[in-house]
Every structure is written in C-alpha cells, then in structure tokens.
C-alpha cells in the first residue's frame, strides 16, 4: 500500500479520509506513509491508555496510538480488520488506530472552512478546518500539531525534562 495516491486532480490538496465513531476525519495524504493492520504491538507500561505500545515497522520501533481512545469516539476493539494509518511527522513515524479508512479525496481551498471553536472532540489547535464534500462533512486534522502535542505524550519535550 505504498503507492502514491493520485486519484483525484481537482483541488489544492488530497486527503485520506478515515472514520472515528460516526464522524469522518481527514489527514493530508502526504503525511501518510502506509496503511497496515493492527498486529504485534508491544505494550509499554505507565503510559496513557491511548498509547497502545510500540510495533516493529520494518526494523523501526514505532509507537501506536489509538485515536478512538484518545478522543473517546467509537469502540476500541481490535479485530483483524482494525486499521493503522502510519503517519510521517517530520523525522518521526507514528501509527494511528482508527475505525476504518474510506477513501482519498481531492479538496479545493474553497471547500475548506475554518473550524468552529467548539463541537468537535479535538482541540481546535489540531484542526485545520472543516470540509464539506457533497453531503459529507470532513474534519481536517493537523497531524503534526496533534502528534507532537504534549497531551499525546509521544515526544520528549524540553519543558518536561526540566520538571
């Protein structure tokens, strides 16, 4: 599943759409490295419950976070159909467990609206906006901001080191 997605040509960006509970979220396709199934995760003690642990991704030790647990959406059960979106955040790689991946959509700038200050389970600083595509509403996530945030506890931060 490593091929580049170039399905749609309209719009300024392409996004991968995935589901968390009843809602549809989207991330910039360029941030997505691959999609794989959820397997072989080694638990790590004393971390928040949404950090499922680490897994071996072709020799790299990569953390796996369950966005369903993090945002309290959907049910966090793990079957052979459970999907992990592997994301590239700068030099880092992180896997995100979601309820399912649906499709890749091209979005134009006009389709993207500013996110409201409320009404989503995600903090506004992680949102790039809302997009309406026909009768669907997509919530665009800024994965860089989200995955490196303090509450994700994925990254050692200078201020934590001092404390």
């Amino acid at each position: 599943m490593n091929q580049t997605y170039q399905t749609q040509e309209s719009g300024d960006r392409e996004v991968l759409v995935f589901a968390l509970g009843d809602e549809e979220y989207a991330v910039d396709i360029l941030k997505v490295q691959e999609i794989r199934s959820y397997a072989g995760v080694t638990r790590i003690a004393n971390v928040p419950p949404f950090i499922k642990g680490v897994t071996n991704l072709r020799g790299q030790i990569v953390p796996i976070v369950d966005l369903r647990l993090k945002f309290g959406l959907g049910t966090a059960d793990y079957t052979e159909h459970t999907v992990v979106i592997v994301l590239n955040i700068g030099q880092r790689v992180v896997g995100a467990v979601v309820d399912g991946v649906s499709d890749v959509i091209g979005l134009s700038a006009e389709q993207i609206k500013a996110a409201p200050d409320f009404g989503t389970p995600l903090a506004t600083e992680y949102l790039m906006g809302l997009a309406s595509v026909e009768d669907r509403m997509l919530i665009l996530i800024d994965v860089d901001a989200m995955m490196t945030s303090r509450e994700m506890a994925l990254v050692d931060r200078a201020e934590d080191a001092v404390a």
Partner: peptide, 27 residues
C-alpha cells in the same frame, strides 16, 4: 539494540528496544 526515542520517547526503566525473532518488539 534499537533506540526507542527515534519515534517515541524515553520510558522509565527501559533503555531501548529490540526486535525478537517473531518480529515482535521486546523492551
């Protein structure tokens, strides 16, 4: 020995990780 901090962060009591023969990660 694989560095845990490349993609994650330091974990107390754990120095690094490795990959076992079955492909699973062991700390």
């Amino acid at each position: 020995v694989k560095n845990l901090e490349t993609h994650f962060r330091k974990v107390r009591g754990i120095s690094a990780a490795t990959i076992l023969g079955d492909g699973k990660v062991a700390l």
